[in-house]
Design a protein around this nucleic acid. Structure first.
Lengths: 223, 223
DNA sequence: GGAGTATCGATACGGTGTACGGCACGGGGT
DNA sequence: ACCCCGTGCCGTACACCGTATCGATACTCC
């Protein structure tokens, strides 16, 4: 399977008048359903075609390759990252909303985190999201360079945190390994990890997000 | 391909005397070489066997499944995350070293970021790293809960940032899409993104890391 | 020497993405 | 009325994947 898609991937439906039955949106939706229910590895051309009552090769009428399909799925899902406008005036509250929304979407669609690892393509929804983020800190009058870094921190931490949470959630045995295999060999770690288990995931997210925002405030906002 | 491995995965070589030619370490090393050179998707049983001059099924003498092989690769790579002891007294400097080391390793082995997305298993190297991280902030006398959050932030941001950088690096076309497709539709975003391109990746990493550490200091260390 | 065990390997099964070429059909030009 | 061709659909086939099964070989220890 070649990893690169056609260079001129079209994001919006070619809008040819919905002649036949199957549409590109149908294919994407069916793939999303499979991914949400059974994970990204369950998304195969044959499987999606089966769910649609079509034959495998029919999908290629509407998508260029499976990689394109994944990119389109990611694009579709990116719509959920958008926050209702208008954004709050307060930059902290605006970034809070953006981060919270993204975190919720990632946790609900864990396959997206896997898809990020394999070549992403930027669609209109991603651009809209970037614009929203830029708008969130516009009132601060940061230099563009500082704004880029500040926004990157929020996005990067959000993705990393979602990845962390999803990994812990999906691999219950992993927690057992962590809390089990600590005799006296890893004294400090086991105490810290024990504490991590006791706090609710929501609390951890909230506190950590505030700390991240504190860092941005301290370094880029206040003198 | 089932996604779960045998429950009792053995991390250290069974040490049965290295009778024949092929060892588990050989298999892991060959797989690592392929992954570093051509990415995780190039790592197949047949390919690794070919590189070793062996037949595919011979690998299963030393590993239980391909998922186990990936877990073992990740474990091996995790050794690079360890920082030379003793750690600096200063918690900021200690965390800096830990984050820098991890970031360098992730950028050098981008396949590891993909592997994180699919079920991780915790090996001794990961435990050692967790212990090092806990030791880095031990002098602060944080509550275990706060320590967990503080360390999580650093690790999560580091992974998120590495993922971001690797994605941008591997998909040069992606940058074109970002800086190209902004007429007047995304005014703020395009200015911010333009600034992101102008700063060196190292500078961005350093500044962002300081901001993250600032946030931890502000929320958990100083009153 | 015999037995047991560990390594290696040939073959095969069911899965994957997708190239290729053919089919049916609907609309436009003559 | 005819043809023709563009377009959606899909049957077949190929190369690849992970690995179950089982046979062959080779080495150690009694």
């Amino acid at each position: 399977m070649p990893n690169r898609a056609s260079d001129d991937l079209v994001w919006d439906e070619p809008a040819d008048g919905a002649s036949g039955g199957l549409t590109r949106a149908d294919v994407i939706q069916a793939a999303l359903d499979v991914a949400d229910a059974e994970g990204l590895e369950a998304v195969s051309i044959r499987r999606v075609a089966g769910d649609l009552g079509a034959r495998p090769m029919s999908l290629y009428t509407h998508i260029a390759s499976k990689d394109d399909l994944v990119a389109l799925m990611l694009h579709e899902m990116s719509g959920e990252l958008l926050v209702p406008e208008p954004l709050p005036e307060d930059w902290r509250e605006a970034l809070r909303q953006i981060a919270r929304r993204a975190y919720a979407a990632y946790v609900q669609h864990p396959w997206a985190l896997q898809a990020f690892g394999r070549g992403t393509r930027v669609g209109p929804n991603m651009l809209r999201r970037a614009e929203q983020s830029a708008a969130a800190v516009a009132s601060l009058d940061l230099s563009p360079g500082d704004a880029w870094i500040a926004l990157s921190i929020v996005h990067e931490w959000t993705i990393g945190h979602a990845l962390h949470v999803v990994t812990l959630r999906e691999d219950r045995e992993l927690e057992g390994q962590l809390s089990g295999a600590d005799p006296a060999a890893f004294p400090r770690m086991s105490k810290v990890f024990g504490a991590g288990r006791e706090q609710s995931r929501d609390t951890i997210f909230d506190v950590a997000l505030e700390a991240v925002l504190d860092g941005i405030e301290r370094r880029f906002v206040t003198p």
